[in-house]
């Protein structure tokens, strides 16, 4: 049903988006928690920086990544020398780009759900002998689960649809960094590929719809459970 090239684009997209979400999940939750529960100097500034990827042209993010993580970049040279890791023009690089673009969405959703968790329940847990970590894993995060799920799916979808930063930083290499949007772009650029482009477009819509449905289903299940109903 699907051609090899289409399969390839889908698999690379899932791999890139999945990796992107995986690497931002823990830092994203940690930062969201910091923003939700603490007041500190420079919080507004940090908040602004966090939201930059949402408002900057993605190409700018890609360019900055290239400058810092490219082989000649400060971080890139260090990564190359000490760990032999090269990010530009690799699918891992695409995952980094996608992750950064998705980061603000994740933090926002998680922060909102953490703010909605009743700190009185956390205080009650502490009087029952639970330390900070136990409270986090048994009270705070489970109660924030619906928001966590929504944030994760949003971030996944954002990473999946990432184009500008990816093509700038990781380029458009078939079988390596040619994700669905890049494959679609390539097809649109080539004359006589209108039908193939339309097919990819439909696939993209399908995947996006599917992830939204799955997230909605999971969040509803989690909410039901939190509201304390059986099943």
């Amino acid at each position: 049903m699907l051609s090899d090239a289409e399969w390839e684009a889908i698999l690379i997209s899932l791999q890139v988006a999945g990796t992107a979400v995986a690497w931002i999940l823990v830092p994203g939750i940690a930062l969201a928690w910091l923003m939700a529960r603490h007041e500190f100097r420079g919080k507004a500034l940090l908040d602004g920086v966090l939201h930059l990827p949402l408002v900057l042209p993605p190409v700018v993010v890609g360019y900055l990544l290239l400058v810092s993580l490219g082989r000649q970049g400060l971080l890139g040279r260090w990564l190359d020398q000490w760990f032999g890791i090269t990010l530009p023009f690799t699918w891992q690089g695409a995952a980094v780009a996608g992750g950064i673009m998705a980061f603000p969405l994740l933090v926002r959703a998680v922060r909102l759900s953490l703010e909605a968790v009743d700190v009185k329940l956390e205080a009650a847990a502490s009087t029952l002998g639970a330390n900070r970590w136990r409270i986090l894993f048994t009270i705070t995060l489970p109660l924030a689960l619906p928001g966590l799920l929504t944030g994760t799916v949003l971030a996944f979808a954002r990473a999946l649809s990432e184009f500008g930063a990816t093509i700038t930083f990781a380029s458009n290499i078939p079988g390596e960094t040619r994700t669905l949007p890049l494959a679609l772009y390539t097809l649109i650029q080539s004359p006589g590929k209108e039908a193939a482009a339309a097919r990819l477009c439909a696939i993209a819509i399908l995947i996006a719809m599917l992830s939204l449905l799955v997230s909605e289903w999971l969040a509803r299940k989690a909410r039901k459970r939190l509201r304390g109903r059986d099943g």
């Binding site: 329940l121 205080a123 002998g129 109660l143 304390g228």
Partner: peptide, 27 residues
């Protein structure tokens, strides 16, 4: 969490995602 004082709050403050048994055994 190290004081070993039991506190019963005005609004009970049960954990909504645990059953009664889970609430009782939490601490």
């Amino acid at each position: 969490h190290r004081r070993r004082l039991g506190v019963v709050f005005q609004e009970a403050r049960l954990f909504p995602h645990y059953r009664v048994r889970g609430n009782l055994t939490y601490g």
